[in-house]
Simulated assay, not measured.
Amino acid sequence: MRDNGGLRVSLDLARRWQDLGARVRFLVLENVEPGGVPVLAPDPRLDTRWGSAQVRRFRDAAPRIVAATVRHARRADVVVSGSEVGYGVLIGWAAARLTGTPFVLLVQSSLPQAVAAWTPARLRPLLTAVHRRVDAAICVSPGLVDDVREVGLPAERIHAVDLGLDVEAVLARTAAAGGPVRSSSGRLRLVAAGRLAEQKGFDVLLDALARVVAGGGDVELVLVGSGPLEADLRAQADRLGIADRVEFAGHVADAQPLIAGADLFVLSSRYEGLGLVVLEALVHGRPVVATDCPTGPRYVLRDGEFGDLVPTEDPQALAEAVLAFVRDPEPLRRKAAGGPARARDFDRAGAALASAKVLAELIG
Rank of each mutant, 00 (worst) to 15 (best):
R45N: 06
K200C: 05
P38H: 02
R149E: 11
R348F: 15
L274V: 02
G152C: 02
E33W: 05
D314R: 13
T291S: 06
A172E: 12
S109N: 15
R342V: 09
V278N: 03
P112T: 00
I91W: 11
P257R: 05
L13E: 06
R149W: 01
A67Q: 14
I65E: 15
F325K: 01
S141G: 03
F248V: 01
V300T: 06
V85H: 02
V85S: 09
T101E: 10
L29N: 06
R298Q: 01
F325Y: 10
G364P: 13
L258T: 09
L258M: 09
D232C: 14
A121F: 14
V66I: 14
A137F: 06
L127C: 04
G186V: 03
H131W: 02
L229P: 10
V151Q: 12
P331W: 07
Q54M: 15
R187T: 10
A121S: 13
A352P: 14
T312M: 14
A95D: 03
G217E: 03
G339R: 00
L223C: 03
H284P: 13
W93P: 00
R189C: 01
G88L: 14
D60Q: 14
P228A: 11
G364Q: 04
D308N: 04
Q236Y: 10
A321N: 05
I259F: 00
I158W: 02
I138M: 08
A262D: 01
S141T: 09
A129V: 06
E220M: 08
G296S: 09
D347I: 07
L11V: 12
T99R: 13
R16M: 05
A121R: 14
A356V: 07
A260C: 02
V134I: 08
A53S: 15
R97F: 00
L221T: 04
V266G: 00
E272P: 05
W50Q: 14
E272D: 03
V39E: 15
L309F: 08
G275E: 00
A73M: 02
K335C: 05
A253Y: 10
Y87F: 15
E84H: 10
V39Y: 15
L301K: 02
S355F: 04
R211A: 12
L359H: 08
V104R: 00
R45V: 02
P329M: 01
I65S: 12
S185F: 05
V148N: 10
E305W: 04
F202E: 05
G241Q: 01
S81F: 07
R23F: 08
V222T: 10
A360V: 13
A197K: 04
D328V: 04
A175D: 11
A231C: 07
P294H: 14
A76Y: 05
A260K: 04
L196S: 05
V104P: 06
P34T: 12
V219H: 01
P297W: 01
L282M: 15
G35P: 05
D218N: 09
L205C: 02
V289Q: 00
A68P: 11
G92C: 04
P42K: 12
A351C: 03
A116Y: 11
D19M: 13
R16A: 09
D203R: 03
Q54Y: 15
E320D: 15
L229A: 10
A324G: 14
R23G: 04
R286G: 00
V224F: 04
A249V: 01
G307C: 02
P180Y: 06
R157S: 06
D166K: 05
D207F: 15
V79N: 13
L20G: 09
L332V: 05
D135A: 07
A94Y: 03
